[in-house]
Design a binder for these strands. Sequence first.
DNA 1: CACCACCCCTGGACGC
DNA 2: TGCGTCCAGGGGTGGT
Length: 291
Amino acid sequence: MPELPEVETVRRTLSEAVVGQMVTHVDCFREDVVRGEAATLAGQRIAVVLRHGKQLAIVGDRGAAVCIHLGMSGTLRAIREGEPGLPGLSELPGGDPDLRSRTRSGPASGDHVHVVWRLEGGGAVAFRDPRRFGGVWAFDHLDKLRAARWAALGDDALTITPGGLHKGLRGTKRAVKAALLDQAVVAGLGNIYVDELLHAVGMHPCRAGATVGAAEARGLVRAMRPLLSRAIAAGGTTLRDYRDAAGGRGRFEAHRVYGRGGQPCHTCAAALKSTIVAGRTTTFCGACQAG
DNA sequence: CACCACCCCTGGACGC
DNA sequence: TGCGTCCAGGGGTGGT
């Protein structure tokens, strides 16, 4: 379940592996996963890999941009020449025989590779997404990507200002947790980090957004940045099958509340409560997080 | 307009 | 061991 730290880790590892490389052609194995012309990056050298919230953009040197959203189960892997690829890549029709022969084979060893960007020199970038909650959106120019997708998002969680967050919260009666999960309010937070954030500042997840004052919004932003930064420094959180673009696991496991319902709060030792807020499993401390 | 329930999808955990 | 069932959850959509 990649959230901002995991997506930023993918951005960095992918960037190191592919910036400056030429995309020779694009294999798309599931049309419904891609919106727009999948081959749009073909013939362009990768100039930069950007991120806004949980979305990535691979940008070509002539301006083409491909937006990738990993959803729940998506991975984006940079496969270097001579390196084993993703499970299942061996089963792809029409793939590079050399690349295929190097990949693990076996009966249904995990296919679900939907798009492969082939690079000059034999490498590749592969988008795999078993549950298909993610997707790929191709544009002939980055400006169009920004207008069509990123304009609707709030400021990135790493750069949002206290004033910006306060503005996003004060107009809503929704639970503050629901608002923080809303990518139009702030982009990049998901269920894990919202629970961690609310616990860190001692705020009840069901507080109405509009009741969060300017000082509390500042507290949220001041807690958010180090929380996300520490997770990025650790390469993100590994739950289930998250991997960065180089196939590495995250090492951030310092969850204080997520997944710990019923266990003692690390701050006050009270049993953490588990409930549903905004349709999401929510864990919080009834004692530390007043509301 | 704001908000919520529902749906999409598959793999892993768990119970019998 | 094997099978069935439930659950995870971001975001889009359609209903209230």
